[in-house]
Amino acid sequence: MNTQLQPPIQPGWAWQYSWLDLSLADIIVVLLMVFVFIIALVLPFPGGHDR
């Protein structure tokens, strides 16, 4: 009678360290945000005055 509830899916992988607990999907989104921001900063804008 003392059985556990069973969700129909498994949780995604999460990075756990001390009180941190971040899902892989969220980490990817945040890294992507930082990456896109840096790329936008560094890439020369077309039609610019670089040369």
Binding site: A40, L41, L43, F45, G48
Partner: peptide, 12 residues
């Protein structure tokens, strides 16, 4: 203005 010359202006 000519200083508007970066991809960061596209985020908005």
């Amino acid at each position: 203005p000519i200083y508007v010359n970066s991809y960061v202006y596209l985020f908005g």
